[in-house]
Amino acid sequence: MERFYADGYELIENQILIKIKNFKKDGAQIGPGLRNIVKVFEIDGEKFNFKSFKQHNVVNRHVYKYYRKSKAKRSFEYAQMLLNKGFHTPEPIAYVENFDFWGLTSSYYISRQLEECPTLMDVIVNHSFPEREQIIRDYANLMFNLHEQGIEFLDNAPGNFMIKNENGVNRFYMVDLNRMSFHEMDLDKRLKNFARLTSDQEVMRIISDEYAKLSKSTPEYCYNKINQAINGMVRKRKIKKILKFYKFFLPKR
């Protein structure tokens, strides 16, 4: 087993390990858990978020032991990096990895549980959401600032941004952090980063307008590039579904 704790949280190590040992039967689950399982546990009167990552196949188990950081470790390190750069994410507490001779068997990322708050998805789908346009513009500002610092948030989906209004300012807390890329990006690459966001034309127009102001481009150019990226993502998903459909009917060998 390998584990690492943020400063000060070594004091609750035993309690964290007990929660992980009883992870399957205890805790309050968030979401359906179709891929990864997220549960909330209480320790000393405080709530913590435990994310258990999906078990890997034999090859990837070996890769994550010897050649690549686990998703739990990346989540922890990226969270610390984001906080150090002035961005927001639930406070990282620890990560825990379990291994056998061949490779990684399980991994957990532990963070502080945020109080219930809306996500960017709630804002996008609810056209009467208070200050909806301003929140969407604030999100575009966030993405521009990430891009300026060479951070590409690959899981840029609306459900991965939790919104808290603090002293009149909308703060976006990013979650699901294990997939990020770090490099300089030209404008086309930046706009392609919005591919997973939404096909809502109004939202795309607002983002395009705001990002154009920040990047000294035009709203039309930004909108066209974002739209191309989203349409490309939709096509990929359709092709993937079709391939899965035909694979189901192929004879088993």
Rank of each mutant, 00 (worst) to 15 (best):
M1F: 11
R3M: 05
F4W: 13
A6W: 01
A6Y: 11
E10P: 01
N14T: 12
I16N: 07
L17M: 10
I18P: 06
K19S: 04
K19Q: 08
F23Y: 15
F23T: 13
K24C: 06
D26Y: 04
G27A: 01
Q29Y: 01
G33C: 11
L34F: 03
I37T: 11
V40S: 11
E42R: 12
D44A: 04
E46T: 05
K51L: 11
S52Q: 14
F53Y: 14
K54L: 10
Q55E: 15
Q55G: 06
H56Q: 14
V58Q: 11
V59T: 08
V63R: 01
V63N: 09
K65W: 10
Y66T: 03
K71E: 07
K73Q: 15
K73D: 03
R74S: 13
S75R: 03
E77C: 02
Q80S: 13
N84T: 10
K85W: 14
H88Y: 14
T89M: 03
P90Q: 10
P92W: 01
I93S: 01
I93P: 02
N98M: 05
F99G: 01
D100K: 03
F101E: 14
W102K: 10
G103F: 11
S106N: 09
S106R: 13
S107R: 11
Y108T: 08
R112F: 14
R112V: 15
Q113D: 07
L114P: 10
L114K: 09
E115I: 12
C117V: 08
T119W: 08
L120F: 00
V123D: 00
V123Q: 06
H127M: 09
S128I: 09
F129S: 11
P130L: 07
E131C: 11
E131R: 15
I135R: 07
I136W: 02
R137I: 01
Y139D: 13
Y139H: 06
A140M: 06
L142H: 05
F144P: 14
N145T: 03
H147L: 05
I151E: 10
L154Y: 02
D155F: 00
G159Y: 12
G159W: 03
N160K: 02
F161Y: 15
M162C: 12
E166H: 05
E166D: 04
N167Q: 12
V169Q: 04
V169T: 11
R171K: 15
Y173Q: 00
N178Y: 07
H183C: 07
D186T: 10
L187P: 00
R190I: 15
N193M: 12
F194T: 02
A195F: 14
T198H: 04
S199W: 06
V203E: 06
V203G: 00
V203C: 13
V203A: 07
M204Q: 13
S208L: 08
D209A: 14
Y211M: 13
A212H: 05
S215M: 01
K216C: 08
T218S: 10
E220K: 12
C222V: 09
N224F: 04
K225N: 06
K225S: 14
N227F: 13
Q228P: 05
I230V: 13
V234D: 12
V234Y: 06
I239C: 08
K241H: 01
K241G: 04
I242P: 03
K244S: 04
F245G: 00
K247M: 10
L250F: 10
L250G: 00
P251Q: 00
K252A: 00
K252T: 12
